[in-house]
Structure formats: C-alpha cells, structure tokens
Design a protein around this nucleic acid. Structure first.
Length: 674
DNA sequence: CTCAGCCTTCTTTTT
DNA sequence: GAAGGCTGAG
C-alpha cells in the first residue's frame, strides 16, 4: 500500500485522488508536477487499472523515462506494458501497426529535420522556383509547412501569419510542399509532422479509433502548455470513449510556439471541456522566496495568462545577484570564480548550471572553463545526429532497411568516389525497382557505369553486403561493420579528426546493441536525441551548460543566467514573431525558476555585435523590484558602470581544440583588431 | 559528369 | 566549422 497522504501535500493529493474525468492541473514551477503525475499513475495501478490501459504523454523522451522510473520506484516494480513516451514516439509505435491502412509500408523511415529540408530543397529545385529571386529557402518553407500542419491551418495562412513578405509566392510554396508530400510517400518515409498528421489521420478510421479509444482508459499529459492544435485534436479523439483526460502544465512556461505549440490549448481547456475540473498547484518547493518573487515580477508583465501566485515553502536565503561586465571574457571569468567558490562551499558541480538563450553564447565560457580545468557538460547546440559521419552511417542503415528511401540513397551514394548526383539518380531508379539488395547487386547495374563510378559502386556494395547480412542479427553488428569498411578509410582521408568521428560511430554501435531490430533502432534514434549522453556520464560531477529550452523541468542549487543583454535576450528574431515578446519573457521566467538557492543574472556590455551594450529589457522591467528588494549586486550594482574585474590575458591555450562558432570567431577577431 | 578549390552563408529554441 | 554554390579543368 502506498501512503499517499504522507507523500503528498493537500493540493497534490486532491489531484491524485480525484483526477478522473477531464482535468486541468495548473502546476506552477517547482510545485511537484512530476510527483503528481507519477503518483496518479501509481494510484491507478494500485486500483487495478491495467498498465496497457494507461497512456502517458510527455514532451521529451527524457521526461518519459524519468516518469516511468519514478512510477517504478513508487509501486516497487516495472510498470510493464504502460504506454509512456513523447507524442512522436507513441505515434511511431501506433503507425508501425496501422500505417499500411494509409498506404505506407510498416518499415517506413523517419526523416529528421535535416533530411526533410534536403528533400524539400530538391522539390523546389525541380520546380525551378529558385530561379526567381526572393523565394524562401528550403529551411524556411519547411518551418512554415511544419507550422501549418501542427497548427492545423493552411499553408497560406501560415505564410501570412509568419512571413507575409512571401505571401505573393504562397501558391508556389504550396506546390513545392505538395511535391514534397508525394516524394515522401513514394519513398516510404515520414517526417516528424507526418507522424502526428498520420496518427490523426488513422484515427479517422472508425475501427482504429474504437480500438485505441477503448484501450486507453486513462490519458495523462505532461507539459500541456507546449502541445499544439494537432496534438490536442489527437488526444481529444483518444479520450472520447472513457473521457479520462488529465493534463498538467503551466501556461507561464509555454516556450515552444516556434514549433506551433499553442498556449490556448491550456488557456482554453475549460472552454473545450466545460465539465473539466481545475486544480492548482501553487506551493513551490524549489526556490527561495527571493528568487520566486523575482520570477513573479517577471511573469506579471505578461497579459495572456492564468493569474496565479506561487508561494515558496523555503526560508529566506541569499538574494539573486545581477552583475555587469565589460566583456564576455570578464563574464566568463566571474562565473569561473563563483563556480569555484560554490564548490568550496560544498556544492557539487552537477548542482550548478549556466543557462543561456542560444548555444553559441556559451563558447567563450567553454574556453574559460577548459582553461581552468572545470569539467562541464554542454547541452543544446550541435546535435549528435547532425554530425556528418553519423548521418552517413545512419543513411547506409536506412538504405538497407528501406530500399525506397531516396533521401538516404542520395546521401550514401554521393559519398563514394566517382558517383555524383546524376549517377546516383540512375542507380536509385534501379534500386527502387528491385525487390531487395541482392537483386540489385546482380542486376547488371555495374556495367552501365563508367570506370571511375564502378570503383565507387564496388565500395558501396562491399559495405552494403555486410550490412544486409548482419541486419537481421543485430543493429550493433551492422554499425560495427561500417567501422571496418572502406567508409572508415574515407573518414581517415577526409578529416583530420577521423578518430573522434570513428569513436562517435562506435558509440552509436554501442547503443545499437541494445536494440531489438534495425527498424526499431532507426526509428528510435530518429525520435530520441538523448541517447548520446550515457548514464555513466550523467552521474559524473560536471558543471551543466544548457540552453534554457533544454533546462525546462530541471533544477539546480545555483543557476547563472548569462548574456542577458539587449539583442541577445530577448532574441531579436524571436521578437519579430507574433507573441514573441511574451514568449521570450516566459523563457526568462523558466530560466529564473530553475534556481533553488542561488541565482546570478549577468551580461556583458560588449559582444559579438556592438548594439549589445544595454541590459536586456527584461532586466530593465524588473529593475525597480530588484532595487526595492535590495538585490545585492556582485559587483558595483545594477548600473551601466563598468565593473572592476580584470580581463585575464588568454595566454594558455585550451587543452582540447574546440569548434568555435563563426560569430564568436569574428568577435574574437574584432577584439584583436582593436 | 565529377571534383577540387574558393566563395558565401548560417544557428534561436527541438520532437 | 561546415555545407552549399559557383567555376573551370579533366
């Protein structure tokens, strides 16, 4: 028996005990949101609800794993059979069984954003739209199209809404996306959006809807403020039979509108479901009153929100600090010093975090930390699966897994000597007509190639043959096959850091070993970025550097919010979006509420661009509050005066060569010129 | 048709 | 830094 009364406060207990029917749980930052969901699940299981009748949808894979392991802890055994995961992961799982109803094969590949853009680009090219000047880039088209599908609006509406300067060519853009749709279907691939769109689509089939809506007696959704219209529509259908839908979220933390998250889902939940019960979790267990007051000041500037007041459970402690520096180096230097001090005061590095608006903001700090020998872990920015060699490896596997996958084919073939776009096109046409790889190998295709291309083709065949044999045994063996193939030689020839790259592939192979099948492995990695961080690594004592987006849901004893300069935060481009300012402010709010005891707000007065010489307007907004509360300033107050901290000469080079962002690079150059 | 060499551009955030 | 575009040689 679980003693719910002992484990939960009265607000939380209310939800766990009475969370049936349509429920909206407004959970402020640090109010025990995860606790409520996991105990609710445990409560259902204890009442005898079967795990397979529970659907738990989360925003990230990490959150899903976390929730499931916490449920396991509470009930004392693995909740086997429980449907827990991200919308995309659950969609993938359902579509593997149902996609044939929509004309796909169940071994469809999943395209990541990069692949999608490549394919879309080829569509725009094919239609010669690039010939006219001022046509949006493939990346922009992709984001507009993606937005329109997730927000359930037309493409034209999306263009008018987000980039009205391209309204004139909206028809052409639409034509390109139509071709894109066609190509994906014939390649038997889905992009991220297709997973959701097709999930919704397949629910239009009465038999499928009945089966799934019957199955999921209880549906729980985490981070509801970050769901989009399409996801809300899917959930509504799924809950239509048992009508047990519990959504948890905090409108103040809605920070994903750029990918069509719609804050109205949560704001209008009571309208959508008039019988819904509304619960509020307003006791904050995370932060000191000072930090919380600051957070409340920030968010009170926003208009579009549920009014709520977070109350801190903790005693008064250190005040948040604001510190100004005359350069990013001084800022980095300060952080290094404070990190050392906090360490000496007994904090583990892993309990401290530095957060920023964009990944490249952290680069100067990275150099500083490397110099000082402070271990850190970088989250956000360059992603594992975007690295060229990882994409190559995965593409080879994708070809082996799904012969129709044109995008992967092009990527693979053009690696090899003597094979360019045209030759590749020819080979792919042939491949798509073949039943399987062996049939392609003996099809006499080699004879049609010139001498140079034959060599490349032979290299490809030598790899593909091995993989094709190994794919049914183990995805791990297949990846290791690549390590021993001519692809390894190719990497050695092409890159100085070939060893690092081979290590990356090794790591991929290590992960692949735990997977059921190649098909499973491929969809898993397309949907889950987090695997790159091994568990072992997470337990190590490292300072965390993270984008604020990636920090959502996490907490640290001390948090540094850096680069709070005008033009950097709020991000200039984001301000151009509708509702951008409020969203950026929510992002600031998320950053602040990650801190438990210590909070440092810092900014430099010089930066990559010369107009970054003012504090963030968000700081200006709360300036009075800061002064009223006697916010101690680390150095010389919250003023525009330059601090007295000295800039250390950067004489010792960083131990490991870091890739430096071009913007940082050009900034460093500017400094040198002075 | 392929490819090397040189040029520009690009990252705000992520499933 | 890397990927894409452009140009001219083979």
């Amino acid at each position: 028996m679980i003693d719910f009364k002992k484990e939960l406060n009265s607000e939380q207990l209310e939800v766990v005990a009475n969370g049936d029917g349509y429920c909206l749980v407004l959970a402020g930052a640090g109010s025990g949101k995860t606790r409520v969901i996991t105990y609710r699940v445990a409560c259902l299981l204890e009442k005898g609800v079967k795990p397979e009748n529970i659907l738990l949808l989360t925003f990230t894979n990490k959150a899903a794993k976390e929730m499931l392991s916490r449920v396991e802890k509470i009930i004392g055994k693995k909740p086997d059979g429980l449907w827990g995961g991200t919308f995309h992961a659950i969609a993938n799982r359902i579509l593997r069984a149902t996609a044939p109803l929509l004309g796909y094969q169940s071994n469809f590949s999943v395209l990541d954003q990069d692949d999608s853009e490549t394919l879309l680009k080829s569509c725009v090219k094919e239609l010669h739209f690039f010939d006219s000047k001022r046509f949006p880039s493939a990346g922009l088209i992709h984001s507009l199209y993606s937005f329109s599908r997730n927000a359930q609006i037309t493409l034209t509406e999306a263009v008018d809404w987000k980039n009205s300067s391209f309204s004139r060519v909206a028809g052409d853009i639409e034509e390109a996306t139509n071709l894109y749709q066609k190509k994906k279907k014939s390649s038997n691939v889905m992009d991220f959006d297709d997973l959701l769109v097709n999930w919704h689509e397949v629910l239009q089939k009465p038999a499928v809807l009945k089966k799934l809506a019957d199955q999921f007696q209880y549906i729980l959704i985490d981070e509801y403020q970050d769901t989009n219209r399409l996801q809300a529509a899917i959930v509504k259908l799924l809950a239509s039979v048992h009508k047990n839908l519990l959504v948890v979220g905090d409108d103040a933390q809605s920070i994903y509108s750029f990918r069509a998250a719609d804050i109205n889902n949560i704001l209008e939940f009571p309208k959508e479901f008039p019988k819904a019960k509304i619960f509020r979790l307003e006791t904050n267990y995370r932060s000191t009153p000072n930090i919380l007051n600051l957070a409340n000041d920030v968010i009170s500037q926003n208009k579009k929100q549920f009014k709520k007041k977070l109350k801190s459970h903790l005693a008064e402690l250190a005040h948040p600090q604001v510190a100004v520096f005359d350069s990013p180096f001084a800022e980095a230097n300060f952080i290094r010093q404070r990190v050392r001090e906090l360490q000496e005061a007994g904090h583990a590095l892993r309990d401290l975090a530095v957060l920023f608006r964009a990944a490249f903001h952290a680069q100067i700090l990275e150099i500083e930390l490397a110099k000082a020998g402070i271990p850190y872990e970088m989250r956000g920015g360059m992603r594992f699966f975007e690295r060229a060699h990882i994409k190559d490896t995965i593409s080879i596997l994708r070809v082996v897994n799904n012969l129709k996958d044109e995008i992967a084919w092009f990527r693979v073939l053009e690696i090899f000597q003597g094979i360019g776009h045209e030759t590749a096109r020819m080979i792919i046409t042939k491949a798509r007509q073949s039943k399987d790889l062996p049939e392609l190998f003996i099809s006499g295709i080699r004879d049609g190639l010139n001498k140079n291309a034959q060599k490349g083709w032979d290299d490809f065949v030598s790899i593909a043959k091995i993989l094709n044999e190994k794919k049914d045994q183990s995805a791990g063996d297949a990846v290791e096959g690549i390590l021993k193939s001519v692809y390894a030689d190719y990497l050695e020839d092409k890159y100085e850091n070939a060893k690092d790259r081979l290590d990356d592939i090794k790591q991929l192979g290590w992960y692949a070993k735990g997977q059921k099948s190649l098909n499973h492995f491929l969809s898993d990695i397309a949907l889950d970025e987090s695997f790159g961080k091994k568990n072992a690594r997470e337990n190590q004592d490292r300072l965390v550097l993270s984008t604020i987006h990636q920090a959502k849901g996490l907490e640290w004893e001390a948090v540094f919010l850096i680069n709070l300069a005008s033009g950097c935060f709020p991000n200039e481009r984001a301000l151009g979006e509708p509702g951008g300012e409020e969203e950026e402010r929510r992002l600031f709010y998320v950053g602040i509420t990650r801190a438990k005891r210590h909070l440092y707000l810092t900014y430099p007065t010089t930066g990559q661009r010369m107009n970054y010489n003012r504090p963030s307007p968000f700081l200006e907004d709360i300036k009075d509050g800061l002064i009223d509360r006697k916010v101690s300033d680390g150095l010389g107050g919250f003023t525009d005066e330059l601090p007295t901290i000295q800039i250390e000469e950067m004489t010792t080079p960083a131990p490991k060569k870091k890739k430096i962002d071009w913007r940082v690079k050009s900034f460093l150059k500017d400094i040198e010129d002075l």
